[in-house]
Each structure stands twice: as structure tokens, then as C-alpha cells.
């Protein structure tokens, strides 16, 4: 009898959660909303651009929150000019992927270590309650060897924000102005493939996000064009590689002359290789890899059995 009662309770709990979140990625709102949090203009495109474009192609509404102003990543440009150009270019890139809006929070790049984590969390929390996303993409703060530590700070704050957004005792003033609590059912942690253990699950599939590779063949071209739109950052990358090679008496024939064509080709090589790395040992030819926490992430494994 107790067993039957427990089974019924479990079934009801799972059913009610699925009712709230939906059984498909679409879900919590009339139109599925995808909210992407990124530390900088390039990271989310390189790590997750194909997957995001696919969701937006399928009818989801996309919003991007770019936390820093990318004012450091340029060659021979002032921070102000770098920030101005990169803002324009990041909005252009987001448009290519299909985003509806881009919010740039304007924190200076490389300075997030000095920003209060609570402040950062609450800035992101605001957008979660505003847009009420069904899907949230955040930088993976647990990825090792990601040298751009802004991504770690943003990932940590975003993860915290997702939880806090669902609890009414966080930021009570937000409720006063109509920003109600929100549970985001699907969460994708993204990172470029720096971490040699990125494909290992942290633990068993209980509350812990699991590795997941997704096919991006259909949106690869969009991802490539979006990456190429970041002209200032790409030029900076090309110049820094050339500078390093020249300082060590080497050269890369592709970069003998740095112009739009050669830089775009460099980006293309990068994007192709990233897709190949993520697709390795999967059924896909071009992929992106994540740590993923879906609806079941909300349900303790003992109830799922």
C-alpha cells in the first residue's frame, strides 16, 4: 500500500513538473525564450552559437546579455574605440544568429575579479525575471583551463542568479516592479574545449548536469558568419598570433598580409576545428558540447525511478 502511495506521489510530482516546464524544450512561456549570458562578445558564439541559432531558427525568441564591454581585445585601438566597435559588431553577430535583443552591461573586460559577485548575480537575475526564459545558456564556471577568467566570474554569477531568480526572498524590490520569480527549466553550461576532462560527468545523473553533444550542421554557416562579424576581436587575434610568430622568427603564410580575407579564413579554420573537436566520438559531423541540466534536473533521481 505504501509502495503504491509512493508511486502515485512520484507520478503526480513528475507530471506536475512536466506540466509546468513542458516535455519539450519549448515550455514555460507562450513563446519559448532563450536567454544567453556571455562574458564577452566571442565566447558564446565559439562554444554555443550553432545550438543557439538552431533554437532561434525553430521559433524561439533570443536575448543576449553581454556582461563586459570587450574594451581590451583589439590591436592599436583605444579602450573606448574598442568598446564602441565591439558593441556594434557583437550586435551584428547576434542578429546573424537570430537574437531579438542584446543587452550590454558594460563592465570593463578583465576587471570582473574586482566586481562584487552579488552585484553581478543581481544584474543577471534581473534579466531572468524579465525575460522568463525556458532555456538559459551560461559560461561553465567549472571548466578548467579557461584562461579568460571573466568567463568564470560570469558563469558563477549566472548560475547563482538562476537559482536566486526562483526564490522570492532574493531582490524583493523586483517583485514590487512586476518582476516575479521564475524557474528556468533548461540550463546549458558552455565552454570552448580547453578542459581535458570536459566530457566527464561531475557525478551521476541526479541533480548534476551531464555532458551533451549537439549537432550543428544545419546552422554551422550562421555560426561562422556570426564569428566573422567580430572584426575587431578577430583582427586582434590575428595580430597577436602574427606578433608571437614574428618575435620567434616564424611566420604563418596565411597571415603574411592581414586583411579581411585572411582574418576571415583564420576564423573559418577555427570554427571548423571547434566543430570537429566537439563532434569527435559522436554521431555528428559538426557539433557543440555542453553540460546540460534539463527538466529532470529539477527532480530528484529517487522520484524518477
Amino acid at each position: 500500500m505504501n509502495f503504491l502511495k509512493q508511486r502515485m506521489t512520484t507520478t503526480l510530482l513528475v507530471a506536475s513538473l512536466l506540466l509546468v516546464f513542458g516535455s519539450s524544450p519549448a515550455a514555460a512561456a507562450d513563446k519559448k525564450v532563450v536567454l544567453v549570458i556571455t562574458a564577452d562578445a566571442s565566447d558564446y558564439i565559439l562554444a554555443a552559437g550553432g545550438t543557439i541559432a538552431k533554437m532561434l531558427d525553430a521559433g524561439a525568441e533570443g536575448y543576449l546579455v553581454r556582461v563586459t564591454n570587450d574594451d581590451k581585445d583589439s590591436w592599436d585601438l583605444t579602450p573606448e574605440e574598442t568598446a564602441r566597435r565591439t558593441r556594434e559588431e557583437s550586435e551584428q553577430a547576434a542578429k546573424i544568429l537570430g537574437f531579438k535583443e542584446v543587452e550590454s552591461l558594460g563592465y570593463r573586460a578583465g576587471e570582473l575579479g574586482g566586481v562584487s559577485p552579488t552585484e553581478l548575480r543581481d544584474r543577471i537575475l534581473f534579466y531572468i525575471r524579465l525575460y522568463k526564459p525556458a532555456v538559459l545558456f551560461i559560461p561553465n564556471p567549472y571548466a578548467e583551463y579557461v584562461e579568460v577568467l571573466d568567463r568564470f566570474y560570469v558563469g558563477q554569477a549566472a548560475e547563482d542568479a538562476r537559482r536566486a531568480a526562483s526564490l522570492s526572498n532574493y531582490q524583493p524590490p523586483f517583485a514590487v516592479v512586476g518582476l516575479e520569480t521564475h524557474v528556468t527549466p533548461e540550463l546549458y553550461y558552455y565552454a570552448q574545449p580547453f578542459d581535458p576532462r570536459r566530457r566527464e560527468a561531475e557525478s551521476t545523473a541526479t541533480f548534476v548536469p551531464q555532458p551533451k553533444a549537439l549537432d550543428i550542421a544545419s546552422t554551422f554557416d550562421k555560426k561562422l558568419r556570426a564569428a566573422q562579424a567580430l572584426k575587431t576581436i578577430n583582427h586582434s587575434t590575428a595580430m597577436r598570433i602574427k606578433d608571437r610568430l614574428e618575435s620567434t622568427d616564424r611566420r604563418l603564410p596565411l597571415l603574411d598580409e592581414i586583411n579581411e580575407e585572411s582574418v576571415n579564413r583564420l576564423v573559418e579554420i577555427n570554427i571548423h576545428k571547434l566543430a570537429e573537436i566537439a563532434a569527435k566520438d559522436t554521431e555528428h559531423s559538426q557539433a557543440e558540447e555542453f553540460h546540460y541540466a534539463g527538466v529532470e534536473y529539477q527532480i530528484p533521481s529517487k522520484y524518477l525511478q
Binding site: Q192, I241, R250, R251, I271, K273
Partner: peptide, 24 residues
């Protein structure tokens, strides 16, 4: 050690740079 080499920041370009960079 955990060694991070010359092209670590660009995992998608590392192989290409190692294969195609030549002496001046």
C-alpha cells in the same frame, strides 16, 4: 605539471598553427 603551451588560448587553431607556421 599542467603545461599550457603557446597556442592554448585558441584550441581550434592550435593544430593549424603548429602545422603551418614556418621559419622566416
Amino acid at each position: 605539471f599542467s603545461r599550457l603551451g603557446e597556442w592554448h588560448p585558441w584550441p581550434g587553431l592550435k593544430d593549424y598553427l603548429e602545422s603551418n607556421a614556418v621559419d622566416q
